[in-house]
Amino acid sequence: MDYYHDRRVVQHAASQPWVRGFRLDEIDYKNETYQWIYDKMHNSISIHNGVKISKYHIVKIYQVKNSFLWSKYTARRSEIARDFPRGQLAPEIRLFHGTCHADVIVRNGFNVKYSNELSMFGKGIYFSDVSSKCNQYTFEAGGSGACKLHGNVHCTLCKRKMLVCKVTLGRNFRANMPMNGILRPPHGCHSVVAYPAQSFLKYPEYVIYNNYQAFPSYMIEYKISI
C-alpha cells in the first residue's frame, strides 16, 4: 500500500479538532474512526517468536486532544515542509507505537532521551505499521517484557495500551543495515525507514529523532487472544 496516498489516512489526518489544553475523548464503537482503527490493528497481525495473536479485544479507544503537542507537531511539520518544493506537503503517515508509557506520552509527548542509542537505528523514537510488532512493547520498555501481575509475555488477562500516531517522515533515509549509535538521521533527511530484508529485518520500522515529529492521535486500551 502507498501509505502517503491512502485516502483513509488523509481523511483521518484532518480530523483533529482544536482544543485548549488536554483531553481524552472516548470514541463510540459505532464511529467510523473506531472501525478504521479496529481494521488497521487486525489487518496487521504477524507471527512473533512462533506466536500469533488471534484477536484484539478493544476495551476503549480515545481520541487525544492536546493543544500544546498539536501546535508543536504542526510547527515541526511546517519546518520540514520548507525542505520540499513550494506547495508540496511533507509526507505523513499513520503508525502504531507500543509502549507502557502511553498515558505519559499523550499528556507530555515523546521524549527521545529515554531511547537507547544502541538500538538498531540509534537513539530515536520507533514506530511500525505492524500492530503485533508494537504489541510486544506494551508491558515493558525495550520489548519482550511480561505483565507485572502474571509474569506472562503473552498475557491475555491484563490490559494493554497502544498509540496510533501521525508521523511526519519528511525525506526519509532508507536503511539496509543497522545504524546503531546514531543520534539523528543522515544529512538532508528527517527520518530513517527500514523495510524487511533477509537476515536484516522482519518487519518495517520507522524512526524519528525529534520529539515533536509525531503526534499521538489515538490511544487504544485492549486485551489479546492467542
Rank of each mutant, 00 (worst) to 15 (best):
C147Y: 05
M120F: 01
D83S: 09
K123W: 03
F139P: 02
H42R: 09
P85V: 05
M162N: 02
N176K: 08
P178K: 01
Y56T: 00
E117T: 12
C100R: 01
Y3L: 14
I125G: 01
L149P: 03
H97Y: 03
K113F: 10
M177A: 14
N176E: 12
R77E: 11
N111W: 07
V19H: 14
L157I: 09
V10G: 11
Y206F: 15
C155K: 04
A13M: 14
Q136P: 00
S78D: 11
D83N: 12
L183C: 10
I27V: 09
S67D: 13
D103S: 13
S71V: 12
R184S: 15
A81I: 07
Y222C: 12
V193P: 00
P204V: 05
K72F: 06
K159R: 10
V9L: 13
Y206C: 11
P204L: 08
K65L: 06
V104Y: 15
S67T: 08
E92V: 15
Q35K: 11
V51W: 06
C155H: 06
Q35S: 13
C189R: 08
W18L: 11
S46I: 10
Y34W: 15
R82Y: 05
A146W: 02
H42M: 04
D28G: 06
L201A: 02
F68Y: 09
Y4E: 14
V104G: 08
I105W: 05
C158M: 05
I47P: 05
K55H: 13
M120Y: 02
R82I: 00
F22N: 06
T156D: 06
C155R: 07
Q213H: 12
E140Y: 08
L183A: 10
Y222F: 13
G50W: 03
K60M: 07
I125W: 01
F127V: 00
S128H: 02
M179K: 06
S217I: 07
R77V: 07
R174F: 10
V192Q: 03
Y212D: 15
D129V: 02
K55N: 08
L118R: 15
I58Q: 02
H154V: 11
T138N: 04
V192A: 04
G21H: 09
A90K: 00
V51T: 14
T138W: 01
K52A: 08
I224F: 03
V153F: 14
S115C: 07
I58D: 02
R23Q: 12
I80K: 00
S191V: 04
D25Q: 12
W70L: 14
V64W: 03
P216K: 00
V59Q: 13
C100H: 07
L89I: 11
Y73Q: 05
Q136T: 00
I61N: 01
N49P: 11
H12P: 07
R76E: 08
K123D: 05
P91T: 04
L183M: 13
N172C: 12
P85S: 10
H48Q: 12
F200C: 05
K72S: 08
Y206P: 06
A141C: 10
L157C: 08
A90F: 00
R86V: 15
F215H: 11
D103G: 06
N172P: 06
